[in-house]
């Protein structure tokens, strides 16, 4: 995720979520979105089958 992509994503998500981001907080949010994207690429680096369910299990 480039800086520009992160900024565009932040703007879109902030609008969709009704979550205002103060101009002073924008650089930090962008940096954290880019860090999260690096973590996501690690997570996505392993292929899972459709039968592999998420860890949390709800018990009624």
């Amino acid at each position: 995720m480039t800086e520009e992509q992160a900024e565009a994503f932040m703007n879109a998500a902030a609008a969709a979520l009704d979550l205002p981001v103060d101009p002073a907080h924008r650089p930090g949010v962008i940096a954290n979105l880019r860090l999260a994207a690096r973590m996501a690429s690690l997570v996505e680096g392993k292929a899972l089958t459709v039968h592999q369910e998420p860890a949390p299990v709800f018990r009624p």
């Binding site: 930090g28 954290n32 999260a36 899972l48 998420p54 860890a55």
Partner: peptide, 28 residues
Amino acid sequence: DPGTRDRFLAGAMLPAHWITQAQRLRAD
């Protein structure tokens, strides 16, 4: 706290796909 704020803000925006995949990877 400025030390946590920007991470919380960014965290609130993460795509659902990343989180669901993270929870599936966690089980694996």
